[in-house]
Design a protein around this nucleic acid. Structure first.
Lengths: 260, 260
DNA sequence: GAGGGTGTTTGAAAATGCGCGAATAATGTT
DNA sequence: AACATTATTCGCGCATTTTCAAACACCCTC
């Protein structure tokens, strides 16, 4: 009886989510027997769903996160490429120490870091609506830097943002970009967004870029910062040679997150 | 092994909290028999809830902490009385004209207004996480005034908030309060929240209070503003005589939203 | 197309941890 | 002092974590 219809993992996880929305609680045993699959498999599914912030793991099963029920639309949107982003976020978390003040930009990669930030005793500074929601839910104390709402990235930008940010000095700043190339540095296509990222990066702390491997060699409209101004780059795959030498030239520490 | 319908531990604890909100006191014995679970288990639940600061342990049971009754129940509060709040919000919307800039505080009543604000062509200024989410969803352009996150009301407060607000001058400011009485004016129990509301109300626009009828004659820890500083009061029931005369004395326009 | 890595998904079983109940001791309440 | 409530400790059973191996799909190379 192996040729079950709903085969692959994503389909099963989708169905688990659907059932979790109906009943607020799902149990490992039920799911396992209903899908005709090993309990271990269900646990792994629940684990990945929990990592994406969809569910909250409890003993014997999982429940959906309280606020989730309404607005899972962009959570689903943000679930694209989650695996790579989560891996990068875990590697980035290793750079955070208890007592730090960390700033996060409004990228989905930084959002993945926000999801696991409760593992450290830190104060945070965020500039995005989703990261704020995430930290509010997990009880991490934070400052939100306000400003004009930018629907594209669900972030805050503009004059108010720059002025407020000028008063803050986090220890570590985590940010992402649309592209990174040797000559152009870190780039992004949206100008207000570029300004906000610059304000974050100019706040004096250690600047840490979070980039998945697809960003290497790409270039968008405007430069956020040249390579020289950042301290660490966390990614999920070994970058091409020309990028590696640019990093070495700028004395940037490269961290490649591996699957584990 | 009887445990059939009861949920896992966290679900039980949440239900205990829910019941503690309804009755001010819950007893170990009742909970144990109602959940079909050992008394010892209930005690452990109460202990963890007490550790999280939700409940206060007393002999034979537990009582919910006063400050918690607002804090934790924010979403319950939002769900409670929605009808009255929606009615008030509809009446308030009539005061908004296309082209206005309107500011909303972080109250659940102002949130009800945010939900229907897309009916006007306005720009908004908000100070609460939920209102921001609401406006983002409905596509209303807005500024979020950032600051230190305050879990109680899911709002932003503090130095950054005051400084940013000092630069903004909305046409109309909608706010709510915990109580309104003739001598004390508008009051609220949470000081940072009071500071934020003052910053909003001092921004120079028309100040409009949104109060459901239960707030009349009540008084909380700190005064936000005396009655004299507001221009309009929108409510859902005719206030008692002493409040009416206070309003008349301060030259405040009173709007009573009716069921329609 | 056969062979052979390499990676991914799933199942199996041992080791560990957690939730819960029961009994007993300690403590508070009246 | 009599009694109710709570703290402690132990043990059982289920859930979870870990680790290892089988099954399967892919991607090369030849």
């Amino acid at each position: 009886m192996r040729s079950e219809p709903a085969g692959l993992a994503p389909a099963r996880q989708q169905e688990i989510l659907r059932r979790a929305l109906a009943a607020k609680l799902v149990r490992v045993k039920d799911l396992a027997s209903d899908f005709g699959v090993h309990e271990m498999t269900v646990r792994r599914d629940l684990e990945t769903l929990a990592e994406q912030g969809m569910l909250e793991r409890v003993h014997g099963g999982a429940r959906l996160r309280e606020r989730m029920s309404e607005e899972l639309s962009h959570q689903l949107r943000a679930a694209r490429n989650t695996e790579a982003k989560a891996r990068i976020a875990r590697a980035a978390l290793a750079l955070v120490e208890d007592g730090d003040t960390v700033a996060l930009d409004a990228s989905t990669t930084a959002l993945a870091l926000a999801r696991i930030l409760h593992a450290r005793k830190v104060a945070a500074i965020v500039s995005g609506l989703d990261a704020a929601e995430e930290l509010a839910q997990s009880g991490v104390p934070f400052e939100l830097v306000g400003g004009t709402f930018n629907a594209r990235a669900r972030s805050f930008v503009g004059v108010l943002f720059a002025e407020a940010m000028a008063r803050l000095h986090p220890d570590k700043v985590f940010f992402s970009a649309k592209g990174f190339a040797a000559e152009a540095g870190f780039t992004d296509p949206h100008l207000p967004e570029v300004g906000a990222k610059q304000a974050l990066l100019g706040s004096g702390g250690m600047n840490i870029a979070l980039l998945d491997a697809s960003k290497f060699g790409r270039r968008a409209l405007a430069t956020i910062v040249p390579a020289g101004e950042i301290d660490v780059l966390v990614t999920d795959g070994v970058p091409p040679e020309e990028v590696r030498s640019a990093l070495a030239a700028a004395d940037i520490r490269l961290i490649v997150a591996d699957a584990a």
